[in-house]
Design a protein around this nucleic acid. Structure first.
Lengths: 115, 115
DNA sequence: TGAATATATAAGCATTTCATTATATACTAA
DNA sequence: TTAGTATATAATGAAATGCTTATATATTCA
């Protein structure tokens, strides 16, 4: 079990504000289960690509997620190097599994189509 | 250790939005340590009384806190009857102690002056 | 090189949020 | 009953949020 370093109230409030949005919270939970590229999120949330990018940017600016380009695609994943990671990870563990969202993509072929 | 009933992502996002404000998060943490009346929060946060009341109302509307009138004063405390309580309690336990805020009131005499 | 695809950024707009000030309500005590 | 105190609610305004559309940037591939 990873020990969590003390984290001040202000940082916690900021993380909560960030995850206090259903889309971003779901994104984080999905990323806790599997890395994911932008186009997959667009499929999952049925939301415009800029809207998705903007949510991801907020998560990234806070250090919660990181990005990695692979060719044309940019894959997002939880940023384990962040000092917030243990805290975020602990939160996500308490949330219901969202793996079904990715499985739907597999079935629909969306995952193959886009990336 | 209390077992936590499953809680859907939307509810979690709502709680996070609520606690994603430094004032409300601190309020909740203080209430986790001791019940508190409105005038004490006004002292602690150096914020107008209506602002404090409005924060408390949000917390109450969500079921996170409850109120109890005692004469002129209204005391707030965590609402243990809420189905959110185990989740909220678990969150608050990970936060740094805020007991000093109440102790400052004791010293300054504010706690005696107002309630 | 040029077209297609994936993503990011900018600009604009409606809505929400969080504070303020002003006022209403509830209780206490003289 | 009236004055004083504690709290809630209403009205308002500035700032933040989350989407949209339009456009810029990177990469791939023919």
């Amino acid at each position: 079990m990873m020990e969590r370093t003390a984290i001040d109230l202000e940082s916690v409030a900021n993380v909560f504000k960030l995850l206090g949005d259903k889309t971003r919270l779901t994104m984080a939970k999905i990323l806790d289960e599997d890395e994911c590229c932008v186009c997959e999120f667009v499929e999952i949330f049925q939301m415009s690509q800029p809207a998705i990018s903007q949510h991801l940017r907020k998560l990234r600016d806070a250090g919660v997620v990181k990005e990695e380009r692979r060719g044309q695609w940019i894959y997002y994943s939880l940023n384990q190097a962040s000092n917030l990671y243990p805290f975020v990870k602990q939160i996500l563990q308490t949330l219901p599994d969202q793996g079904d969202k990715l499985r739907v993509l597999d079935k629909s072929g969306a995952r193959i189509t886009c990336c």
